[in-house]
């Protein structure tokens, strides 16, 4: 094993990175009186009452469902659009190709906040505020440039001969996409999906502007309301936060490799 002096600074960093999560989880199992008496302590009689309260008395389940719907919808839509476009951009020659790729790629750095004003006005006009469909469209648009960039880069690395062999086998371009390109692109697709899901699930800005209705709120928008209302019940708040974080934590634990690869893809451009 390598020199272990690095363990000292690394442990400090790890404690700093972990402490808030530990605080969140530990506190979520405590009760309000214990917390008021001592802010930093293990639960004396750990109980799930806060979770029961969050799930039964408060609309965390509803919010979670809304977040899930939005995340799944926008990631799915964006992935389909990005796959189709990236396939043409990476593997076909046509006029305007480099312009489309260049514009799409540069949109990766456009701050989302600058796009919302006209869309908010338009959605008000069309009655699309508080609709999942309208919001999914915005999220999908915001995350698609990254998808196009990542997949175009990846599709270009596939060997030309595979495409030529498939053409000789009589496969048309769409069949080559579904039968050859997509099966070979699973790692890249997974990276893209987890990174985009993280973005949509965790976003607050679009959610509180475009989904203001109580029944349409996402988890993150819900938390922003909840913490204002239950500011004093810290253990209950922490249970809600833990619930809101669990889906992405599961995704992270299951697909850690793909998270890192996906994020790295953005950095090497």
């Amino acid at each position: 094993m390598r020199p272990s002096w690095t363990h000292v600074p690394l442990s400090l960093i790890a404690v700093a990175a972990l402490a808030p999560s530990v605080f969140m989880v530990v506190t979520s199992f405590r009760n309000l009186e214990d917390y008021a008496a001592d802010k930093v302590a293990w639960p004396e009689s750990p109980g799930l009452s806060n979770y029961v309260s969050a799930l039964v008395e408060h609309p965390f389940v509803k919010w979670g469902f809304n977040s899930l719907l939005l995340t799944a919808g926008s990631v799915l839509l964006s992935t389909i659009v990005a796959v189709l476009a990236a396939y043409a951009l990476a593997r076909m020659r046509f006029a305007g190709r480099s312009v489309i790729l260049g514009v799409s790629t540069s949109l990766m750095v456009v701050p989302p906040v600058t796009m919302i004003v006209p869309l908010f006005v338009l959605y008000t006009q069309l009655g699309l505020i508080n609709t999942f469909g309208g919001t999914i469209l915005i999220y999908a648009g915001l995350i698609t440039p990254f998808g196009v960039f990542l997949l175009t880069t990846f599709f270009r690395t596939l060997p030309d001969e595979l495409f030529e062999a498939a053409r000789l086998d009589g496969a048309g371009s769409f069949r080559i996409l579904t039968n050859v390109v997509l099966p070979l692109s699973l790692p890249a697709l997974l990276s893209l999906i987890v990174v985009n899901a993280l973005y949509v699930w965790n976003d607050l800005l679009i959610a509180i502007i475009f989904l203001q209705d109580d029944s349409r709120r996402t988890l993150m928008a819900g938390i922003s309301v909840f913490q204002g209302r239950y500011n004093n019940n810290v253990p209950l708040t922490m249970a809600g936060l833990t619930l809101a974080s669990v889906p992405m934590l599961i995704l992270y634990v299951a697909f850690q490799r793909y998270f890192i690869r996906g994020l790295m893809a953005g950095a090497v451009k």
């Binding site: 690394l10 960093i13 790890a14 990175a17 972990l18 808030p20 999560s21 605080f23 969140m24 506190t27 993280l198 699930w201 965790n202 607050l204 988890l219 993150m220 938390i223 922003s224 913490q227 810290v234 708040t237 922490m238 936060l241 809101a244 974080s245 992405m248 934590l249 992270y252 850690q256 998270f259 890192i260």
Partner: peptide
């Protein structure tokens, strides 16, 4: 260690902010 160090980025900003606010 690497998994732990990356953990903050997996937590949503609103979650991080509320925890920070309470702590």
């Amino acid at each position: 260690m690497r998994s732990i160090v990356f953990l903050p980025y997996i937590l949503a900003i609103p979650v991080v902010a509320v925890i920070a606010k309470q702590m």
